[in-house]
Simulated assay, not measured.
Amino acid sequence: MISIIFNQGIIPKDVVERPINNDFVLVSPDKVLLTFIENSVYLGLLWVRPWTILGSIGIGKIEAVGVDVDPTLQGKNVLILPYSKKYGGIGTEIDGLLTEKAVIPDDAIVTLPENISDKVLLYPFVSIATQIVDLVKGEKVLIIGSGLLGLLTYQYLLDSSIDVSIYTDIPGKKIQGVKEVKNLEEGKWDIVILSTMRGWARYIAERLITEDGRIIVPVFMNTWPPTLPSRSIRIYPKKMDGLLQKTEKISDKFFSENIAYSDDILSSIPTSKNGVIVNVKKALASYANSSLIT
């Protein structure tokens, strides 16, 4: 079974098919969204266990189910979230989606209707952004990080008439159409959202908040981050009512500016845009007879 794994680097490998545990489903992945999660593994910002199959967010079809899973799910198209409450991060703490047959916990899937667009792959970020909007009530907010999560959260907070700014953690990166903070010494904020995997942001966050301020940390794993500043709130991606419809309302402009497409997984990490959607079947087939496979 051709898979993309982490083992002293990100490489294709022919691995043994994983068994289906009681509360897991067997998914044939169709498309996977590569994001800061895979980028962080590549850059060494996020450690994963050697031989872990990567790929955290995707869509595919359920081919089989474990004995404790609703059998009517078989044959359904599903979205796979990057986090399982029972088992942790998909493609980080347990095997992920960059493989011919993925074994996924049933609490990390969302069944999909017919003819839904690729915007649904942004569901995990919309989930976190929606939860943050519910927490923030008329407070001054700073988002550190300008990836998919940071930009979507910024937009939803702005739509809720929140005073929100962004600080990009990428030197030289220009962000259009946002209120940008250039110098973190400019002031203090009621809420600081850490939308970055870089450790320095967690280190300085407490210095950036007011006396009664809070730090919001979007989290995609159980074991990361290893430590958090005091007054931190963890927010996990989760299934939420009405979120499929909300993803469909993401503007075409935002999607095209932030998402690219590719048929090659290895050349797409790190990603050329904030996210890259890869055709898993086509990409893995190209490695089948490759000298890269050992």
Rank of each mutant, 00 (worst) to 15 (best):
M1N: 15
M1H: 14
I2M: 15
I4E: 04
I5R: 03
F6C: 08
I10K: 10
V25G: 08
V32I: 10
L33V: 08
L34Q: 01
I37G: 01
E38G: 04
E38D: 04
E38T: 06
N39H: 02
L54R: 03
G60C: 09
G60R: 13
E63H: 06
V65F: 05
D70H: 02
P71A: 07
P71F: 08
N77L: 08
V78Y: 10
K85G: 15
K85P: 12
K86L: 14
I94L: 14
D95K: 05
E100Y: 09
E100A: 04
D106S: 15
A108Q: 01
A108S: 14
T111M: 07
P113Y: 12
I116Y: 09
S117V: 13
K119H: 14
K119N: 15
L122Y: 03
L122A: 11
A129F: 10
Q131K: 13
I132V: 14
E139C: 12
K140S: 11
L142H: 12
I144Y: 07
S146W: 00
L149M: 08
T153K: 00
Y154Q: 01
Y154G: 03
Y156I: 11
S160H: 10
S160D: 15
I162Y: 02
V164N: 00
S165K: 12
Y167C: 00
T168Y: 12
D169S: 13
K173A: 13
K174W: 06
K174Q: 12
Q176R: 08
N183M: 05
N183F: 10
L184C: 01
E186N: 11
K188V: 15
W189C: 00
V192K: 10
I193E: 05
T196S: 11
G199R: 03
G199T: 02
A201H: 03
I204E: 13
A205V: 01
I209C: 01
T210L: 06
G213D: 09
I215D: 00
P218Q: 05
V219A: 05
F220K: 00
T223Q: 04
T223I: 09
L228M: 10
L228S: 03
R231S: 08
R234A: 12
I235L: 00
I235D: 00
Y236I: 00
P237F: 03
P237V: 01
K238M: 14
D241K: 14
T247A: 06
F254Q: 04
S256I: 08
I259H: 15
D263R: 12
I269K: 02
P270Y: 02
T271Q: 15
K281W: 07
A283V: 01
L284V: 04
S286W: 09
Y287V: 00
N289Y: 11
S291Y: 11
